[in-house]
């Protein structure tokens, strides 16, 4: 028996054109490379100094915790001086004693913005609800 090769309609079709797929993929890669640094930005909400200051004067002392950055490595929680690395351990019980878990943060002039934000971050992680930044 002799088999003859027959040309099927499929043989007439051209291969899949992947050019547009590659175009779109490359454009996506380039744009994602450019946008990635912005995508990893976030922010921590704070109250303005004046607003926070007014609120602070109207609240009882027992309703808020006052944090004061004395230097880059030391923070005063109400009247207790603690190392910045140990802030969370000292802040959590202090916040538990308050009703609103509100915090007022004061910072010395020569402290870096990075240290200030680190304290903000730790306060948020301890469950602080409202954070007011004090003027001085």
């Amino acid at each position: 028996m002799h088999w003859q090769s027959q040309q099927t309609p499929l043989d007439d079709e051209s291969p899949v054109n992947v050019t547009p797929l590659i175009d779109v993929s490359l454009v996506l890669v380039v744009i994602l490379l450019l946008a990635t640094p912005l995508a990893f930005e976030s922010s921590i909400g704070v109250k303005s100094a004046q607003k926070g200051g007014k609120e602070a004067t109207t609240k009882k002392q027992s309703l808020r915790v006052t944090l004061t950055l004395v230097d880059e490595q030391s923070v005063r929680v109400n009247q207790t001086l603690v190392a910045r690395d140990e802030l969370m351990a000292a802040l959590e019980p202090a916040l538990d004693e308050t009703e609103e878990r509100a915090i007022t943060i004061a910072c010395a002039d020569n402290i870096s913005h990075g240290a200030f934000v680190d304290v903000l971050d730790k306060a948020k992680r301890c469950g602080a609800n409202g954070i007011a930044v004090s003027g001085r």
Partner: peptide
């Protein structure tokens, strides 16, 4: 220095901003 950032925050408040946040790197 925080002193510089605080002066800017005061200007932001003076500009009429009601809501403010400080940007961080996640």
């Amino acid at each position: 220095p925080h002193e510089f950032v605080r002066r800017v925050i005061e200007q932001v408040r003076a500009g009429g901003a009601q809501r403010m946040a400080i940007a961080t790197r996640q």
